[in-house]
Amino acid sequence: MNIRDLQYIIAVAETRHFGKAAERSFVSQPTLSGQIKKLEEHLGVAIFERTNRSVEVTPIGEVILQHARQIMEQVDAIEQVAQAHHDPLAGPLRLGAIPTISPYLMPLILMPLKQDYPQLRLVLSEEVTDTLTRRLQQHEIDAALLATPVEEPELETMPLFDEPFWLAHPRDHAFYNKEHITREDLETTELLLLAEGHCLAKQTMEVCRLKERSTRGEMADLRAASLETLLQLVGAGFGSTLVPALAMRGSWATGSGIVTRELEFPDAYRRVSLVYRASFPRIEALHTLARVIHDHLPNTVTPIDAVGVRG
């Protein structure tokens, strides 16, 4: 067994295809297939279940792959330790972010990060919370920007900032003539929500004290896949919704026919954190990223210092 064998089985597990895994590994398919077969014979177990149509990981294969990913992270850590001797911030940092953060925060920090730390290269991916958490656990990314707490014991959390929610509604909405929006107003109105899987939908329901999604009424079947689509529905007069403060900088905020106002509830916010594996060896790179984020946050959010105190 060698490192190359582990790289091969990880490639097959991630692509679910021997040919694609061989291309990714820069070897021929017979070479890759032969090495994996030798590894399975050496271990006395089948890592993959092969059919004419698919490649699936066996239960014992999942356990082996978990160890393989941990080993490859340590191999990468060895290389990074050597690299850090010359430059502790050098190399790629694989960062994930949820879709309701990434489009609004990344434009604020990418250029400053590139200018101040040109040797640190962000590799970005945008996915929902559950997917990012799973990818963190499987060592596919190094850290993730999330807006919900994580309970997995192998993951650590670095709080960054608290982000208030704003109410967005059409100009002809009943809310337009109300000087103050109460929680009772939100509890009794129909709200547009993102589709299942987006943490913002759950957070909106929590702020509005909604126990479950509406299954009746005009809004019951409207489930947007992105915040931008949701806001287009608001602008078209289909209803109201809650918007995180960073998204208020989006292009939709002007000339869209949408009225916005900050909610005046003490708990109408979400906490955005940088989540990472406790075993991740490049903590200094994460602290650097956190500092850049803090330095370029707009005044619509409340930064949190290193010990979790709101600034």
Rank of each mutant, 00 (worst) to 15 (best):
residue 121 R to Q: 14
residue 97 A to Q: 05
residue 218 E to I: 09
residue 109 I to F: 07
residue 171 R to V: 13
residue 183 R to Q: 14
residue 60 I to M: 07
residue 114 K to T: 11
residue 304 I to L: 08
residue 25 S to H: 00
residue 110 L to A: 14
residue 63 V to R: 13
residue 139 H to M: 06
residue 111 M to R: 13
residue 123 V to Y: 06
residue 154 E to N: 11
residue 193 L to Q: 07
residue 230 L to V: 01
residue 187 E to V: 06
residue 90 A to C: 07
residue 86 H to Y: 11
residue 253 A to M: 07
residue 86 H to G: 00
residue 308 G to D: 06
residue 149 P to E: 06
residue 229 T to L: 03
residue 228 E to S: 10
residue 91 G to A: 08
residue 192 L to T: 10
residue 57 V to G: 01
residue 75 V to S: 05
residue 287 H to Y: 13
residue 173 H to Q: 05
residue 231 L to I: 04
residue 192 L to W: 04
residue 6 L to Y: 08
residue 83 Q to F: 01
residue 3 I to M: 08
residue 29 Q to R: 15
residue 135 R to W: 11
residue 241 T to R: 02
residue 260 T to L: 00
residue 171 R to F: 13
residue 48 F to E: 05
residue 116 D to V: 07
residue 55 V to Y: 03
residue 242 L to Q: 04
residue 228 E to R: 02
residue 215 T to A: 08
residue 53 R to G: 12
residue 148 T to V: 15
residue 110 L to I: 15
residue 25 S to Q: 12
residue 308 G to C: 07
residue 1 M to S: 13
residue 303 P to M: 09
residue 133 T to I: 15
residue 190 E to N: 12
residue 183 R to C: 06
residue 109 I to M: 11
residue 118 P to G: 07
residue 129 T to A: 13
residue 265 F to S: 02
residue 304 I to T: 11
residue 296 H to K: 09
residue 168 A to T: 10
residue 96 G to R: 04
residue 292 V to K: 02
residue 133 T to K: 08
residue 181 I to M: 09
residue 258 I to D: 06
residue 239 G to F: 01
residue 279 S to D: 15
residue 130 D to M: 07
residue 182 T to F: 03
residue 201 A to N: 10
residue 263 L to H: 02
residue 201 A to S: 15
residue 242 L to T: 03
residue 296 H to M: 10
residue 17 H to I: 00
residue 70 Q to Y: 09
residue 57 V to K: 01
residue 284 E to G: 13
residue 149 P to H: 01
residue 67 H to K: 11
residue 38 K to W: 00
residue 53 R to I: 09
residue 187 E to L: 09
residue 165 F to P: 03
residue 111 M to N: 14
residue 111 M to P: 01
residue 15 T to L: 01
residue 262 E to H: 02
residue 196 E to Y: 10
residue 27 V to I: 15
residue 58 T to M: 08
residue 241 T to Q: 04
residue 86 H to C: 01
residue 284 E to C: 09
residue 17 H to F: 00
residue 210 L to A: 10
residue 103 P to W: 06
residue 44 G to N: 10
residue 22 A to V: 06
residue 6 L to E: 10
residue 35 Q to V: 05
residue 119 Q to D: 13
residue 271 R to L: 03
residue 159 P to A: 01
residue 203 Q to W: 06
residue 50 R to V: 15
residue 185 D to Q: 05
residue 27 V to K: 05
residue 28 S to E: 11
residue 206 E to H: 12
residue 14 E to Q: 15
residue 259 V to Y: 09
residue 168 A to H: 09
residue 18 F to L: 11
residue 66 Q to H: 12
residue 280 F to P: 04
residue 214 S to M: 10
residue 174 A to V: 13
residue 260 T to C: 12
residue 232 Q to N: 06
residue 146 L to R: 08
residue 178 K to N: 07
residue 76 D to N: 14
